[in-house]
Design a protein around this nucleic acid. Sequence first.
DNA 1: CGGCTATTTGATCGATTTCAAGAACAGTGG
DNA 2: CCACTGTTCTTGAAATCGATCAAATAGCCG
Lengths: 236, 236
Amino acid sequence: METALSPSIAHPTGPLHVMHMASGSPLESQWLRARVGATHRRLRAGQYLYYNGERASDLYMVRAGFLKLCASAEDGSERVTGFRMRSDMLGVGSIGVGRHTCDAVALDTTDVWVLPFAACGRVAELQTALTAALAEEIRRDRAWMMAVGSLPAEQRVAHFLIDLAERHDRLGFNARRFTLCMGRADIASFLALTHETISRALSHLAKVGCIAVSRRDVQLLDIERLRATGTSTRVH
Amino acid sequence: METALSPSIAHPTGPLHVMHMASGSPLESQWLRARVGATHRRLRAGQYLYYNGERASDLYMVRAGFLKLCASAEDGSERVTGFRMRSDMLGVGSIGVGRHTCDAVALDTTDVWVLPFAACGRVAELQTALTAALAEEIRRDRAWMMAVGSLPAEQRVAHFLIDLAERHDRLGFNARRFTLCMGRADIASFLALTHETISRALSHLAKVGCIAVSRRDVQLLDIERLRATGTSTRVH
DNA sequence: CGGCTATTTGATCGATTTCAAGAACAGTGG
DNA sequence: CCACTGTTCTTGAAATCGATCAAATAGCCG
């Protein structure tokens, strides 16, 4: 019944679609994981998987739960740079520098596989999968750049909700109704807005009937209209 | 004498610094290039190296000149997502999807090496270098997200100028004085502003004595102050 | 020189931030 | 179970920054 939603949710040619690749990637294969000596780690909400600047020796794949990534500028201000859920990779930004370039914080009880760096390099299949995961990350950031740079506040929020819905859909979760694992402030930081603006945008989208919101529970009522607001033209 | 500038220009721990890595990367080695069958291509200003959506079979490394990358949203609006100069990689976003995810347009007479995809995959050293290049790209985008998301217009412009200066410095070019290869509109698109705002920001930075601008020639007169404006706190 | 595009500058308008306060909720300890 | 406290969320009103509209100037190329 989730698949019935796909026609309206899915985005066949968009960059986000490719993320699904990870679900079938070698990184999820059982024997490969054994071969690289993958271990397992569980985090409670609020715990850090790794810290910015910390020595990096592993990559991670989320198996359950939800995390946010926070980068900090030189001046000390923090910004959320992304959210990660099941089948997403973590820590790829550390490749080539050996240190994590952001914090990773669990927003819910979270399970990850720990994939040692060195081992990943030895296994050719993993190299390839890793490369693909990196490329995916780039496309994801690119999409974010487009959205944040050119959409007004309410449309950014709509875009954000649709993105979450698509990811839920791909993982087989309910894409029309889900709970946000992060607070308004985190969404605001991610979308480069204030938490008041997020609140107002959600209230307004609810008032016009696109969605229903109660605290952190969200229902997408009129996805088409939501997508329309989240996609409409805004040329600089 | 360029090195004398480094203390004030360089950014020892910042993500941008790592970009330099590319200069010493295997991708620049002569025999490796021969081994992957690298060819050469020259573009005149305005010519496209590749188009968004086009089948991708190569990666590119810039040897001379200057290019911009343009991504287009579903609604048709175009946005500049980056600028590339010597020692930068191009086309990495296509890895894993087989198609280019943006346009690459020369802004000046430009030379690139063409590195066939398939060959890159065979050579282990290249795989590693490639992975590093991808990670670099991610960090670069992350830095952009931080800047654009949290800085007001004038500081974004200052940040942009400093970034260009650092890249020039690393390549051994004059970091205090250079000419912009792109128009105001391209800068505006990249920084998610309007070209009028870019113009005003440059004029103002010039009025307060941080820089001198004439058309596309820029001199950085007071880098410290420029950096201060480009870094100052702006917490959401 | 004319026509073109890029750039600069001014004036106004509007979206979003900021400041401020209240309401809903969660957790705590009595 | 309930008051207490702190946090998250919502809402309002005012202030601000950048966009938009409009026009003038400056280069550039044929």
